[in-house]
Simulated assay, not measured.
Amino acid sequence: MTETSNEILYCIGCGAKIQSENPNELGYTPESAVKKGLETEELYCQRCFRLRHYNEIADVSLTDDDFLRLLNQIGESDSLIVNVVDIFDFNGSVIPGLHRFVGKNDVLLVGNKSDLLPKSLKRSRIKDWLRQEANKQGLRPIDVALTSASKGYEIDNLLELIDKYRKGRDVYVVGVTNVGKSTLINRIIKQQTGISELITTSRFPGTTLDKIEIPFDDGKNLIDTPGIIHKQQMAHYLTGKSLKFASPQKEIKPKVYQLNEGQTIFLGSLARFDYISGGRTSVIAYFDNNLPLHRTKLQNADKFYEKHAGELLQPPTREELKKMPKLTRFEFKVSEKSDLVFSGLGWISLSPNTIVAGWAPEGVGVLIRKAMI
C-alpha cells in the first residue's frame, strides 16, 4: 500500500486504494506517477490513466462477493439510496434483489439516458412505466426522476429531489455497470464545484472499483459505488468496435416493419427476431440507429446466418464472432401489446395474439415485458 504521511491514497477516477507493489491488483500506480499525481492533485491509478488517455481497459479482480458486501453495508446504513437505471435497458440494469438489501432506506429511482427515447413520448408516462416495472421487482421507490447524464438534462431537478429526500443523511448512488452512473456523478460534481470529469467514465462495464465520496456542505457525503455486474447485458460480450451498438449515443429513430408469418429480422449477427404466427402484423424496432437490420425468410434463416454472419451481417466481424457465445432461442406467445427485449441492445414492440422467437448470445437476457411505448 502506498501511503504519504501515514495517509492512505485513493484513485480519484475509480476510488481504488493506490498501491505500487502489484501491477495486476486494483489501484496499481508506479511510485513516480504517485509523486506527480500528488503534485498536480490529480492522482489516478494506472488503469484509469490509460482508460482516460488511450481508451484502454484492463481486467480487475473484483468479485460478486465484493458487491454483495457493499450492498449489505448500504442496507445497514441510514441513508437515501439513488438507484440509477438505464432507461434504454431497464431490465438489464435492474440490480437483482436490491429490495432485499435496502433495509428501511428510501429509494429514489433515476431513469438515465432519457435523451435516447423519442421526444414525442410523454415523460410522465415513462415515469409511470418505470414505477410499475420497479414494483414488479419488489422495489417501492419514493419518487422517480428522468435524466440524461451525457447531455446534462434534468440534473437540477435530480439535485432538488436528493436534497428533499435525504433529510441530512448520506446518499449512496447504486447501479449496474454501463448505466451512466459515474457520468451522472460527474455532472453533479461539475454543477456543484465546476470541476469536470473527475470520475473515470467509459463505455466499458465496471470502471468504478471502490466507493468514491463527494462531501455535502453539511458534512454528509454523496457516495458513488462500483457498478454491480449484470451478466445478462449484451455489453459484456462485445469488444470495442461492436460495443457502440449496445451503447446508443443519440435519440433512437424507431423502424417500422410490416411482416407476414415466417419472416426473420437479423440484428447484425448479434441477435435475431423470428415472426412465427399471428397473421400480417407491424412491429417497431428500437435499436441504435446504425445497427443494420436485415429481413429474410424464416425457413432460410439458419443457412443465411451461417453464410453471412460476421460479413453481410455485422456487427460483429467474423473474427469477433469467434469469441462470442452461440445464439440461443427463446419463444414467446404474446397476449397483449408487448416488447421483446434483447438485454442491453434494444427491443421490438409487438402486437397481441402473436407467436415470436428471439435469439441472442447464450447468457444474454431475452424477455417479454409490458410495452414501454
Score class of each variant (00 low, 15 high):
63 T>H: 10
33 A>W: 03
187 R>V: 00
138 G>D: 12
89 D>F: 00
225 T>F: 06
133 E>T: 09
19 Q>D: 03
102 V>M: 08
134 A>M: 08
102 V>H: 08
303 K>F: 04
372 M>V: 10
226 P>A: 01
22 N>M: 05
262 G>N: 12
78 D>L: 04
302 D>M: 06
294 H>C: 05
320 E>M: 04
12 I>P: 02
1 M>D: 02
82 V>Q: 12
235 A>C: 05
188 I>L: 07
237 Y>G: 00
122 K>N: 15
284 I>Y: 00
100 R>H: 13
339 D>Q: 06
85 V>E: 05
205 P>I: 03
86 D>E: 14
70 L>S: 10
40 T>G: 04
366 V>T: 15
95 I>F: 06
133 E>F: 02
261 E>S: 13
138 G>I: 08
93 S>G: 13
262 G>Q: 11
295 R>I: 08
133 E>D: 12
324 M>R: 11
350 L>E: 01
291 L>R: 06
361 P>L: 03
146 L>T: 14
132 Q>V: 09
60 V>H: 15
178 N>D: 15
217 D>R: 09
228 I>P: 00
230 H>I: 05
138 G>F: 07
163 D>P: 05
67 F>I: 05
258 Q>D: 12
145 A>M: 15
311 E>H: 12
171 V>Y: 03
23 P>R: 07
308 H>A: 11
141 P>C: 10
8 I>W: 01
85 V>H: 04
120 S>K: 10
199 I>S: 07
16 A>I: 09
235 A>K: 10
